[in-house]
Nucleic acid binder design. Structure first.
Length: 637
DNA sequence: TAGCTACCTG
DNA sequence: CAGGTAGCTA
């Protein structure tokens, strides 16, 4: 007989309510070591210390009149206690003095390298500067023209494929389809528009010439699109590849499989690999270009005191740990103080455009400040610190206000352009693949053949390039981390957020994962994560409570959750495996209350009821704290 | 019906 | 951790 809280409340008389009122919310009864016997009295109803109702059928009180336990912990305090104070102490992070100009030149050189690489894969001489590259000043003249005919021919020749593939083999067709030709096509035709193809005024894609159903390919073809190899209507054979309905209106393009070359699967694969490499290179190249086009906006910040580099040197860009900490824990495979993405300038005046886009090719601004103000003095070195809360948030960017199912964001932020390009290059927007952009997807995306030179041109550090688990995975993780997918970093962040909130709302998730392009899928995945977290949390609580009950623990006061307790260790190992995050004290309190709730329920035999946990859930869900603003940063990345 | 949740399973 | 499913609620 374990009534729901509603039932309890409905049946509760004012006399029953009064003690609760006195206790403010009845949270304290249990937390203060109320003997379990006390809980068994009170007229068939067990007033859960945490407000959860336990209606007793058989355990009438031998202890009638017993004081429902004094409280030493103000329940209101428990409920309303603010999260650990995070004083927004400004990090002495002055305007960047990073040698931007030099860096720009370096980046440009890299861009040229990328271009050269791309060109050399096909035909360097056949990719004139007039192809719409920003340097050519033609980047704003509408949709970019893609490699000219010669490029295709060169590539085709290199792959022993001229014009159209010649194969009737359905296996080849299938392979072609499986090789992401659709996303590639979409890259050209949909969200993959390079930033310069966006109307800066309207924030919308520029008027694009209507998509052609097919493009011809051949010596007489005016097309300069390498993808036209797929779309030549003059090729006898082929198959239609439907384009993304949203982006392309459901148009189809025709993938050719016609006649003039042997067209083995290998050649097809090679060609597709070339295309992939080329497009990845090109996408990054264009993104770098687009970023540098806006770089002058960053330059008004002259070198000043508090060099950013000093700040960077003092703090890990990854964890925000003080550099002097012997336990600083930079990202795996990354030298201390070095991010796989490099380190960026630091300055609150930097526009937000730099906070994400440059992470791929430029060093990223950690702009961190210590969490020390809310950290106990005894805190171990190496424990996680929060990123700076004064990270300049994009205006109105608290989450994607457009809604969970909002389409591709059209931000002025050039990094969005990069995101879109990367997204369009690496996955199909709106597809299931995009929905599942997580560690699994990243692993699954390794079929992308990445040229080692590409990694070098991306400024991926050598140690990263040579990581044991492969540079591709690293890069793909990086790429995906820039788009709307969830990465392991997000997972880690979610786990740490769990220390504050067990039941985050969608709004909270969107607010604190603002670097994620929210879709219904992404939202569901995040919610699922927290659901899994809760599952583990409650399992541990129940386990511990049963153990305590079995061991004959007499009263809840004997049940505490300290940092040295086994329960906490287990939880900490799960949500904070590296133990580099200072778990807020509040979490310990909530855990303790949860444990006691379970203990009481188990002790009273409530677990006979299939839904005996629901009242506990109902209580615990009210104990969420606000997540510190610091988590809004792309933490812990 | 959509959104959220817990539960179970792999 | 994710997929599937069922239950609940607005």
């Amino acid at each position: 007989m374990y009534a729901s809280s509603n039932t309890f409340l409905d049946r509760r008389s004012p006399e029953h309510l009064q003690p609760l009122k006195h206790d403010s919310c009845a949270l304290c009864t249990i937390t203060d070591g109320l003997d379990i016997a006390v809980l068994l009295n009170n007229d068939d109803k067990l007033t859960s210390p945490l407000g959860s109702p336990y209606t007793m059928g058989s355990s009438r009180a031998e202890l009638d009149g017993a004081d429902p336990a004094p409280q030493s912990r103000d329940p209101l305090h428990l409920l309303s206690a603010p999260p650990p104070l995070l004083s927004p102490t400004a990090t002495p992070c002055g305007p960047k003095d990073w040698p931007l100009r030099t860096a720009r030149h370096a980046k440009r050189a890299r861009v040229e390298n990328i271009r050269d690489m791309a060109g050399s894969s096909f035909s360097p001489s056949l990719e004139p500067d007039t192809d719409g590259a920003p340097e050519g000043g033609q980047g704003d003249k509408g949709p970019r023209e893609w490699p000219p005919d010669g490029v295709q021919a060169q590539r085709a020749g290199r792959s022993s494929v001229v014009g159209c593939w010649s194969s009737e083999d359905p296996a080849i067709k299938n392979q072609l389809q499986n090789m992401k030709c659709q996303p590639l096509l979409k890259f050209r035709r949909s969200g993959g528009l390079p930033p310069e193809d966006w109307d800066r005024d309207s924030d919308q894609p520029k008027e694009e010439t209507p998509l052609e159903e097919t493009h011809s390919f051949g010596s007489d073809s005016p097309s300069k699109d390498p993808y036209d190899v797929f779309t030549d209507p003059h090729c006898g054979d082929g198959f239609d590849v439907p384009l993304n309905r949203k982006a392309c209106g459901g148009k189809k393009v025709r993938v050719q499989t016609a006649s003039s070359s042997p067209g083995t699967p290998d050649t097809a694969n090679a060609l597709m690999a070339d295309i992939l490499k080329y497009e990845l290179s090109r996408a990054v190249s264009m993104s770098v270009d687009s970023i540098f086009k806006i770089m002058p906006r960053l330059e008004p910040h002259p070198p000043a005191a508090a060099p950013a580099a000093v700040v960077v040197m003092e703090r890990s860009a990854v964890t925000g740990l003080p550099r002097e900490s012997p336990l600083s824990r930079p990202r795996q495979g990354t030298p201390p103080g070095t991010s796989p993405y490099g380190e960026a300038v630091c300055g609150s005046t930097l526009p937000e455009v730099q906070t994400e886009a440059l992470s791929l090719v430029v060093q990223r601004a950690p702009r961190l400040r210590p969490y020390a103000l809310c950290r106990p003095p005894h805190q171990h070195h190496g424990e996680q610190e929060f990123p700076s809360s004064h990270r300049s948030e994009p205006q109105g960017s608290e989450g994607n206000k457009g809604g969970a199912a909002a389409p591709v964001r059209r931000d002025k932020n050039p990094c969005e352009g990069l995101k879109q390009e990367v997204l369009a290059t690496a996955g199909a927007p709106g597809s299931k693949v995009r929905c599942k952009v997580n560690s699994r997807s990243v692993r699954g995306a390794r079929h992308f053949a990445l040229d080692p030179g590409f990694l070098g041109d991306l400024c991926v550090p050598m140690d990263v390039q040579t990581r044991a688990d492969g540079p591709q995975s690293m890069l793909m993780s990086t790429l995906f981390s820039l788009n709307d997918g969830l990465t392991t970093s997000h997972l880690k962040k979610a786990k740490l957020m769990f220390f504050y909130t067990r039941y985050p709302s969608s709004l909270v998730l969107k607010t604190f994962f603002h670097d994620v392009q929210f879709t219904r899928c992404i939202t569901s995945q995040l919610i699922k994560w927290f659901s899994n977290f809760r599952e583990f949390y409650y399992i541990q609580m129940e386990k511990q409570a049963r153990q305590a009950a079995a061991e004959g623990v007499a009263h809840t006061g004997a049940l505490t959750v300290g940092r040295e307790s086994e329960l906490f260790r287990t939880l900490n190992m799960h949500y904070n495996k590296a133990s580099d995050f200072q778990v807020p004290e509040r979490f310990l309190e909530v855990a303790e209350m949860t444990l006691r709730e379970f203990y009481v329920a188990v002790s009273l035999g409530k677990d006979c009821d299939p839904s005996w946990k629901k009242p506990i859930y109902k209580v615990i869900c009210k104990l969420d704290s606000n997540v510190p603003e610091e988590f809004k940063a792309h933490y812990p990345d």
